[in-house]
């Protein structure tokens, strides 16, 4: 039996057009930035020690922030996915608060606590940890604004794994911890990993909170801003291109690594289909 594809209806044509407008809105500035900057100036900027060091600092600080959030956030994500308890909705809301905060306001809030006169700032100073104009400050700012991406994505990934897998594992002799490590975690690993990469990418691109808490040492977004303020658009463009390219590489790698399916729809627990 052969079937012919139906002709697209008017609504499909309309929706496609609206979507194309949105795609152009995203794509045009990105392409204008990349194509409107000479490769020579980008290579020149990349040769600068300051830029290279700034890039390294950005990636590294975002990685530490993600690692800390992973240890603290993934267990919380699991609890939120599996348990019902009083105040759960409140906790879920709190996790998402950084998304609705203006990030400069987040930076001010963090400075109040981690600054030289803040509670944690004073408490941790004897340990050699200062947060103003320091790498720990950058880490704290990045972590604060980007942790919802990890916790939310991991929670969704855990929720998609049927809890009965763990029950079966328990009847097969696994303790609760072992059951989690051998069933739910490996089944949710695509989603958790997607959360990790999204948080990392979001950390790399953070500006508002970092600039308030730790203007120095300069991460790439701060560097871009500084060059724009000090020397104008043409000076800012090469550095901007570098960070945009890095972000694109990370994102493309993520898509390739997690397969052709949508990042959020990795559902190992829901189907009986083998993973590719």
């Amino acid at each position: 039996m052969s079937t012919r594809r139906r002709r697209p209806t008017a609504i499909v044509v309309l929706f496609s057009f609206l979507g194309a407008v949105l795609l152009a809105f995203v794509l045009v500035p990105v392409m204008a930035l990349i194509l409107g900057t000479s490769p020579g100036s980008v290579a020149e900027a990349f040769d600068e020690g300051v830029v290279r060091w700034s890039l390294w600092l950005t990636l590294y600080a975002a990685l530490i922030a993600t690692a800390i959030a992973f240890v603290l956030g993934v267990p919380l994500a699991y609890l939120l996915a599996r348990r019902d308890f009083r105040g759960k909705a409140l906790i879920e809301g709190l996790i998402d608060v950084p998304i609705v905060f203006p990030h400069t306001a987040a930076g001010v809030a963090l400075l109040t606590v981690y600054g030289q006169d803040g509670i944690l700032g004073r408490l941790l100073a004897p340990l050699g940890l200062t947060f103003t104009d320091s790498v720990p400050g950058i880490v704290v700012a990045m972590m604060f604004v980007s942790l919802p991406f990890l916790v939310d994505t991991a929670r969704e990934a855990f929720a998609l794994v049927d809890p009965r897998y763990e029950q079966v594992a328990r009847t097969l002799g696994a303790s609760p911890g072992v059951a989690f490590l051998r069933t739910t975690l490996p089944m949710a690993r695509r989603g958790v990993l997607a959360g990790v990469v999204m948080m990392w990418a979001r950390g790399i691109s953070e500006f508002g909170a970092v600039v308030i808490l730790a203007y120095n040492p300069k991460i790439v977004p701060v560097l871009v801003y500084e060059r724009f303020e000090g020397f104008g658009l043409d000076a800012a463009k090469p550095v901007a291109v570098i960070i945009v390219l890095v972000a694109l590489v990370v994102f493309v790698a993520l898509r390739a690594f997690l397969g052709p399916r949508r990042v959020r729809s990795a559902r190992p627990g829901a189907g009986r289909r083998a993973e590719p």
Partner: peptide, 16 residues
């Protein structure tokens, strides 16, 4: 895990 029971659900729930 201490009860020594085997459980088979309607939908198998084989670990994918």
């Amino acid at each position: 895990e201490q009860r020594r029971v085997g459980f088979v659900y309607q939908d198998s729930l084989l670990f994918p």
